[in-house]
């Protein structure tokens, strides 16, 4: 039995359902629009020219990346301490904590969004409670705040799990050794634990960044039409305006931009990860 044969089913899946559609989109992005068909005859660079010259679409791309960066930073800031605790705790509640971390993945994204709407709406639970204290009401949704809250909630596990795995594989003796050499617990963290957990941080950051840059349902439902990101506009182009070639181009530009950001991030962290793992 040749070993590559074992990979064949997965390769077929990837080939059929990822590579072929992607190539299809690439071809589509060079097509001209047509009022009567999905696309018109011949090939054109107009779609790319339009996106790269129109401040509207460039601004949209910038907003999308800012949402992704904001979500990623918040997920890291909130997720790292949780990951550290989960990796090191010997508490009997560990299993429960772990389930809590995974809980955002246990229901569908639409249901979760409605949950957030119940909480964040102008007459929602949070504003009612604030009202009792004589505060508000505040606008917590149909704006970037609501979208970011929901994005962070949904993608947090993708930050926590890889970091937790990385910290678990760091020998606790390393921290102890640093302490015996005169390092305070804070310096031990900065000089030993953090650098050694970088592989997990790297995976977590990339996962959350890519997922939140391409998120559609959350900005759609919690943005309530007031928040536009590249994915929401792509869907508008496909479903609303039926401009398939332009939608395809927009989607590709977003993918490519995200790829560049990930590559830059990879290059920046590679140096810091020399000798790790």
């Amino acid at each position: 039995m040749r070993r590559w044969l074992l990979a064949l089913p997965a390769m077929l899946m990837v080939g059929l359902f990822v590579v072929v559609p992607y190539l299809n989109i690439v071809v589509m992005s060079f097509r001209a629009p047509s009022p009567s068909a999905i696309y018109g005859p011949g090939f054109t660079l107009d779609n790319y020219a339009r996106i790269l010259s129109d401040p509207l679409y460039l601004g949209l791309l910038k907003d999308t990346l800012l949402y992704a960066l904001g979500t990623t930073s918040l997920c890291f800031a909130i997720g790292f301490p949780v990951a550290y605790h989960l990796a090191r705790t010997e508490s009997r509640w560990r299993g429960l904590l772990y389930a809590g971390v995974l809980s955002p993945l246990l229901t569908g994204v639409v249901i979760r969004c409605f949950g957030w709407i119940v909480l964040l709406a102008n007459n929602g639970v949070i504003n009612q409670l604030l009202g009792l204290a004589g505060l508000g009401p505040y606008r917590l949704m149909y704006n970037p705040v609501g979208v970011t809250i929901a994005l962070v909630h949904v993608f947090l596990p993708f930050m926590i799990l890889p970091i937790m795995n990385a910290i678990q594989s760091v020998d606790p003796r390393l921290s102890e050794a640093a302490r015996t050499m005169g390092a305070s617990s804070a310096r031990t963290f900065v000089r030993v634990v953090l650098p050694l957990s970088l592989p997990g941080v790297q995976s977590g950051v990339i996962l959350v960044f890519v997922l939140s840059a391409s998120a559609y349902i959350i900005p759609m439902l919690l943005g309530g039409g007031q928040v536009s990101t590249t994915p929401t506009v792509v869907v508008q182009q496909l479903m609303g305006s039926l401009l398939w070639p332009f939608g395809a181009t927009l989607a590709l530009v977003l993918s490519f931009t995200a790829l560049i950001v990930v590559a830059l991030f990879g290059a920046a962290t590679r140096r810091a990860m020399r000798g790790v793992a």
């Binding site: 390393l174 050794a177 640093a178 000798g275 793992a277």
Partner: peptide, 15 residues
């Protein structure tokens, strides 16, 4: 405490 300690696993910093 001004100590030097050697661990069974050596605990050298891999990075």
């Amino acid at each position: 405490r001004l100590i030097g300690m050697v661990f069974q696993s050596y605990a050298l910093f891999p990075h």
